[in-house]
């Protein structure tokens, strides 16, 4: 049987996707540092959960978790070790790779039983097949790679007691500041994302984007031109240097569709664009596009949406 080790950081959608992908490859053993992660692993069909308990581990950045993951990877000797492709997931995978002198594949969007991985290159313009040639398949998995499918079970739980070694106390986390997301769904997890770009023209007019998002029960996103101009906070930026989203519906209003923006939204199921320039590249990838002024089109659409509800 193929053994799959999965790092489960939390109870979010991305973690559920990685567990689901792991299950298609073999028997999943999940690594959980808290109860919420352990519960998610059970819900998504893990056969086994390593429930790690390490006092004070959250006071330090990356290093102590990397040590735990390296030790578990060494003793479990899996065929695959999967982590979500987040900043943390990639950092941990990098540390495991050096410690074990193992191959490393990042931002994988698909995996086959023989270890062949699908990866995007050049912001998604090129799709590459690759494979590890040393050690097990160590891969970080991009969000939106699989549809999360629950398979509730009662995994065997192995308690792992770990201590934070002095050498792993080098980077202290002295404060965690969460900027509240408000009532809207989180950008990375939302079913619907409505994004505005430079074409929205001002911070005030982003209220129109918010109204459309609310009418569709979605999250608000923004292009980098919009965040750079201060129309909307940076944390809502979609794209290569912002958040990668993969919703059922992505609406781009006043966004030209630069390659760096497309990198963060091109796996959305349905893409809708509103832009007054018929030649904007975003129309090349849109399932439905309206060539027109967003200040005419969106208010009319809003009215029509309200009528239908």
């Amino acid at each position: 049987m193929t053994d799959i080790l999965v790092y489960v950081p939390n109870s979010g959608k991305h973690a559920a996707e990685v567990l689901t992908l792991g299950r298609t490859l073999g028997d999943v053993s999940a690594i959980a540092f808290d109860d919420a992660a352990a519960a998610l692993a059970g819900e998504y069909g893990a056969a086994k959960v390593y429930r790690v308990d390490a006092a004070g581990i959250d006071d330090y950045f990356v290093d102590p978790k990397a040590t735990v993951l390296t030790d578990l990877a060494r003793s479990a000797a899996p065929d695959f070790f999967l982590l979500p492709s987040t900043d943390e997931g990639k950092a941990l995978a990098a540390r495991v790779a050096v410690a074990l002198d193992n191959g490393l594949l990042t931002d994988v969007s698909g995996l086959e039983a023989d270890g062949t991985a699908t990866q995007d290159a050049f912001a998604g313009a090129t799709v590459v097949k690759s494979k590890s040639t040393k050690g097990f398949t160590l891969a970080t998995v991009k969000t939106g790679s699989t549809e999360p499918a629950p398979a509730p079970g009662a995994p065997a739980v192995e308690a792992v007691a770990a201590t934070v070694a002095e050498a792993d106390q080098r980077v202290r986390v002295t404060e965690r500041v969460d900027e509240p997301a408000g009532d809207r769904p989180g950008l990375a997890e939302a079913r619907v994302v409505v994004s505005g770009g430079r074409g929205v023209g001002s911070a005030e007019d982003f209220a129109l984007i918010e109204r459309v998002a609310d009418a569709l029960g979605g999250a608000v996103g923004a292009s980098r031109a919009a965040t750079d101009a201060g129309y909307y906070p940076h944390k809502f930026q979609v794209g290569q240097t912002g958040t990668t989203v993969s919703p059922q519906l992505y609406v781009a209003a006043g966004i030209s569709g630069a390659i760096q923006h497309r990198a963060g939204m091109q796996t959305s199921r349905v893409i809708v664009a509103v832009n007054k320039d018929a030649d904007a590249p975003i129309f090349g990838m849109a399932d439905y596009g309206v060539v027109g002024d967003l200040f005419q089109v969106l208010p009319q659409a809003l009215e029509a949406i309200e009528k239908r509800k």
């Binding site: 129309f283 060539v291 005419q296 089109v297």
Partner: peptide, 15 residues
């Protein structure tokens, strides 16, 4: 995809 020009009906068409 399907691209339409707004001639006063674009918002309704989108909805």
């Amino acid at each position: 995809g399907q691209i339409v020009a707004d001639e006063g009906q674009g918002g309704d068409a989108l909805a």
